[in-house]
Every structure is written in structure tokens, then in C-alpha cells.
């Protein structure tokens, strides 16, 4: 883009206002997580007690445990299946490849409620009880396409001849993949996995249809609480979760910026 069109203060003001819009509720949550009053109305005094109390709240901890468990397992499965799938699709021709390519976009573009009810229907047809297991199946399903897309966009940038060069130098196909292609693919795989984990952790709609009462997730718990009133404990644990994710993204951004500076 054109550098000479830049540097007008109102442009930065617009950027600032948009970011303010995105961050306003986040800031509210953080502030109220330190509020002494249980009512999220006005800030009445500073306290960190909710950060202690939340870890003794059985309901929140159980939901959080479910969410993290589902997130980790789904991410691991989706990353392995999605990465091997993306690599295979870039490398081989096989019958049904075009169809598979189209099907992968369904979970991305279809309204989540439709994917949710379709899985609910099939679970009831086959007789899979609504549980953590059914939830994991659902989460892997909507995570795979994002992993494929991320890995594929990275694969495009990898020179095909590198793999040939490795074979030429005596590597067997597995060595060529694991020692040359995989290390180059790793940033894509990591961001695909990160993307999956974030999607899984925040999913409301699909989880709503595919989990049972005994395996409620953190977002679904918040959904239930929003109507009656969210407690500062939720604010506190959300702030902690955000902190973890922000650190992750910040590390990634710092890494990218460093790399850019190195490259000039």
C-alpha cells in the first residue's frame, strides 16, 4: 500500500476507536474481576479474592476441566488428521479428492447451528450418548478444516524440489518428510493447532447440541449463568484464561516481528 497516503491523525483515531470497541467489554470483565461487590454494577473496591474463590467453585472448575480436556484432545486429533490430510491432498491424486476438498469447507461456511443439529441427529441415530466423547467428535469435526487450511497455505510456500532434493541425497520418503518438510511446515501446524484450540475452547453453539448435562463446558456454563447473572468468579477465571492466550499470541507476534526485522 502507498506509504505517501499515510500518517493522518484521524486514521489512527479510527483505528484506536475500533480497537476500543473490541476491547471495551474485555476491559470491563478484567476490572470487575477485582471488584469487591458481587453485583457487576459499579466498582466498589479492589480485591483479588475471586481469584482464590474460583478455584474452589466446583461447578466452574468442572466445566473448565471439561473444556480444556475437550480442547486438548480435539486439537491433537484434528492437528494430526488435518496435517496428514493436507499433505496427502497436496501430494497425491486420488478418487474423491475434489469432493473431499469441497466437503472440508462445509464446517467452515455452514451456520454452526446446522452442523450442531446434524451431529445431534446422527448421534441419536447411531446411539452415541451425549457425553465428552460425542463432544470431542464434534469439535474435531469443525477443527480439521481449519488445520487443513492453515497447513495448506504453508505448504504452498514450500518448494516441492526440497523433498526431491532430500530423496536425491538418499533420504527415504519418511526421512524426506520428517527432516525437511515437517520442520518447514511446523509454524503452520502450530498455528493450525492454536486456532483449533481457541475454536474449541470458545465454542457455544455446536457444544450446545452435542454435549450432555454431565459434561458441560465452560462457555455453556457461562451461557446458563448470563441470564441469572455472571459472578465475579467467572470474570476472574476469564481474565486468567485471556492472560494465557494473550501471552501465547504475544510470543508469536514477537517472534514474527523479530523475524521481519532480521529479514530487514
Amino acid at each position: 500500500m502507498n506509504k505517501r497516503l499515510t500518517a493522518r491523525p484521524w486514521k489512527n483515531v479510527f483505528i484506536g476507536l475500533t480497537l476500543l470497541f473490541l476491547y471495551l467489554p474485555v476491559v470491563v470483565i478484567i476490572i470487575f474481576s477485582f471488584n469487591t461487590s458481587k453485583m457487576n454494577i459499579l466498582f466498589e473496591g479492589f480485591t483479588t479474592k475471586w481469584y482464590g474463590l474460583v478455584f474452589h467453585n466446583y461447578q466452574i472448575m468442572a466445566a473448565l476441566k471439561n473444556s480444556i480436556l475437550v480442547g486438548v484432545i480435539s486439537t491433537a486429533l484434528a492437528t494430526v488428521i488435518g496435517t496428514t490430510g493436507a499433505v496427502a491432498m497436496s501430494k497425491y491424486q486420488f478418487p474423491g479428492k475434489k469432493t473431499l476438498d469441497k466437503v472440508l469447507y462445509i464446517p467452515i461456511v455452514i451456520p454452526e447451528v446446522v452442523l450442531g443439529i446434524s451431529l445431534l441427529l446422527i448421534y441419536s441415530l447411531v446411539g452415541i450418548p451425549l457425553s465428552l466423547f460425542s463432544l470431542i467428535l464434534a469439535h474435531v469435526t469443525f477443527c480439521i478444516p481449519f488445520v487443513v487450511l492453515t497447513v495448506r497455505s504453508r505448504l504452498v510456500g514450500i518448494d516441492q524440489t526440497l523433498e526431491e532434493a532430500a530423496l536425491d541425497l538418499g533420504a527415504n520418503p519418511w526421512q524426506a518428510f520428517s527432516q525437511v518438510v515437517l520442520p518447514l511446515l511446523l509454524p503452520g501446524i502450530i498455528s493450525g493447532a492454536g486456532f483449533s484450540f481457541a475454536l474449541s475452547l470458545d465454542d457455544v453453539i455446536i457444544s450446545f447440541f452435542t454435549t450432555g448435562p454431565a459434561s458441560t463446558t465452560f462457555p455453556l456454563l457461562v451461557y446458563a449463568l448470563v441470564k441469572t447473572g455472571v459472578t465475579p468468579e467467572i470474570n476472574a477465571i476469564s481474565t486468567l484464561l485471556m492472560l494465557v492466550i494473550v501471552i501465547g499470541i504475544a510470543l508469536n507476534a514477537i517472534h514474527q516481528v523479530r523475524k521481519m526485522k532480521q529479514e530487514g
Binding site: L19, V26, A253
Partner: peptide
């Protein structure tokens, strides 16, 4: 390029925290 990376990361950050919690942030306000 550096400002771009940072600003776009800033756009993504809130979206990875819980949507319902953030909606409740608006309700609180």
C-alpha cells in the same frame, strides 16, 4: 510491516477469549 503485525494481532486477541463472557461485558455496561 511491524505495526501491521502488531495491530492485526490486537484484532485477533479479544476474539480468542470467551464470546459469552465478552457479551456479558457489554451487558455489564
Amino acid at each position: 510491516p511491524v505495526a501491521k503485525t502488531i495491530l492485526m494481532a490486537l484484532v485477533v486477541v479479544p476474539s480468542v477469549s470467551n464470546s459469552l463472557v465478552r457479551l456479558f461485558g457489554w451487558l455489564t455496561l
